[in-house]
Write a protein that binds this DNA or RNA. Structure first.
Lengths: 146, 146
DNA sequence: CAGCATCCCCGGTGATACTG
DNA sequence: CAGTATCACCGGGGATGCTG
């Protein structure tokens, strides 16, 4: 199943157009971009990063703020983020145990980048909603005519 | 700042400067941000958007360039993107059938926004790799000590 | 309090076969 | 060529129970 050769897995969009260079990105399934994108796209990571923005929270506080997350998934998510160097974990040797989480400087920069995406979404949500409504209407009409 | 309920749909970014307060985003599971994030995070959407950047491709061309995608998933992905108004689909009434895909203007703006994320990834992939290596080393050491 | 281990389910995805 | 339809799989994620 190894990509092995991983031969130019993508379009080497040659010289076939009046356009200037399109930015070519790595399209391999195991590339770094996909790694991060998977992290972005998973269910809880972004929420954790957003909640840790300029804050320092302990496990239970995070869990309370993220309504719906299971203990297991919060743990798993935090471990991934810690492994990626996006979140820092501080264990206090006290009883009962206390563990604090905060963004690393790397995590902060990712958060800032993600904000652009969030703002894009908020600026264009109406267009998307309209597009969906139009699409559904067209689809329904087609199904109706048939 | 009080949270009240975690389902607060508001994001009060109003008159505050970018760093005076945390930017609150919609944390509901069904919010628009999550809708788009799910699209970003799925397996093929981003690849399609990237490949359609300043190009106009037909179904088979896309399929050939995206190594590993099944016919079914390419269809599903394109339908979602079309429904969201990100990709435009042109059907030519010829035999054999010819269908062209291209980004809409909305799709172009999303692509531009995503580029920031991709570039972040590329700039920081070394840090992430280092963080992972360090984490794994720590973990292995701990397991070893035990 | 902050986890880890286990079981289990569901939906996203792939493979395959068929069609206009 | 560009799909649609159906089946099967597997892994993400929830629920639960147990520990330091």
């Amino acid at each position: 199943m190894e990509e092995g050769t991983s031969k130019s897995p993508t379009h080497s969009c040659g010289t076939d157009g009046p356009y200037t260079d399109a930015y070519q990105w790595d399209t391999r399934e195991d590339c770094e971009v996909r790694q991060i994108l998977d992290r972005i796209g998973d269910k809880w990571s972004l929420l954790v990063i957003a909640l840790l923005d300029r804050r320092r929270l302990r496990f239970t506080e995070l869990r309370r703020e993220i309504d719906g997350v299971s203990q297991r998934m919060l743990t798993v998510t935090l471990r991934q983020l810690e492994r990626d160097g996006l979140v820092h974990r501080t264990v206090h040797a006290v009883v009962p145990p206390r563990v604090d989480y905060e963004l690393t400087s790397l995590g902060v920069t990712l958060h800032e980048t993600i904000q652009a995406l969030v703002m894009w979404t908020e600026s264009h949500q109406n267009e998307i909603a309209a597009a969906r409504a139009a699409y559904d209407a067209r689809t329904a009409a087609a199904a109706n005519a048939q």
